[in-house]
Design a protein around this nucleic acid. Structure first.
Lengths: 163, 163
DNA sequence: GAAACAAGTTAGCTATGCCTAACTTTTAGT
DNA sequence: ACTAAAAGTTAGGCATAGCTAACTTGTTTC
């Protein structure tokens, strides 16, 4: 019996991710924790848990704590990885405020295909490995310039425009 | 009377964008064109058009062609701009297949905040303006290397790993 | 100009996913 | 242990957004 490709909505992915996070942090997840983390009401959590339990991604017994099944954990990890990768890309490469990123990274992680996400990760990695690594870009008065972090500037031409 | 910040769902934004595109291409949009472009049924289009008409973003009269109001056009342009920027970033900078990008760019354009999108555009611009401009990165057997497009490779260190 | 076909609309159904309110179970305090 | 508070569940409601089926309008074609 091959496992059919489990198809999760963005919402259910959020629940899985939240459960994973809370479990890592506190050992087990209570519906209340999940509700607080996702800014939904407890009643909504019950509904989601039933769906996830039906897909055998969480161990759910009414009035009991929630844990992830191996499948659930695997998927949750993958989503978390996406989230972290996006967070890193937007903060490290694009230099966006982390608090700003959190707002939309959790939405993007549901729409970016795996292979694109991987490419994004590789790109962020490339930025670090390249001789210009650590180079970040900033808008100056007259255009853009490279600015390096902690190493000698190698991107000399760009730096002509730097203040 | 100040115009209240019109808040559109991702779905309605898709409709606006589609109407804009079709109008640019053919002069005016028929519900059929919209339905075909968004892969929905004609009945769904009617519902969306009523909502957009209520927000005064489209001129809608039953059984007639659809046009955008100035407000609708302005918003549609902004969405289209986001779409194009994302498309360009993923194809030019991340070197993802255009056909692949189309699939999720239309979802991302609804979740990326304006200021982040701008940053992304600036970054793509930076990649072009930097001395390493045109440098694209690719995964090699033993890591990553820079590859340039049409100009001399400046990213020499990286090229040590290149095949 | 009338019939046939395409396009558009309406009504009603479905599913997701959230909510509130009322109820049940568990936990905690005394 | 008993009661009160907190946590969890159930039932029912609402909004979005799609669908089908039946009907209306518009356009072609002869």
């Amino acid at each position: 019996m091959s496992k059919s490709p489990i198809h999760l909505t963005a919402s259910l992915e959020d629940y899985l991710e939240a459960i994973f996070f809370i479990t890592e942090e506190k050992g087990a997840a209570r519906p209340k924790d999940i509700a607080d983390r996702l800014n939904v009401k407890a009643a909504s959590v019950t509904g989601a848990l039933k769906q996830l339990a039906a897909k055998e991604l969480v161990n759910y017994t009414p009035y009991d704590i929630v844990t992830l099944t191996p499948d659930g954990k695997r998927i949750a990890k993958s989503i978390t990885k996406k989230h972290a990768a996006l967070l890193r890309f937007f903060t490290d490469v694009l230099d966006i405020e982390k608090s700003d990123v959190e707002d939309f990274a959790c939405k993007m992680e549901h729409v970016i295909p795996d292979h694109v996400l991987e490419r994004l990760v590789e790109f962020a990695e490339f930025v670090h490995k390249c001789p210009n690594r650590g180079a970040i870009w900033r808008e100056g008065a007259h255009g853009y310039f490279c600015k390096t972090r902690g190493i000698d500037p190698l991107c000399k031409k760009c730096n002509l425009d730097a203040p």
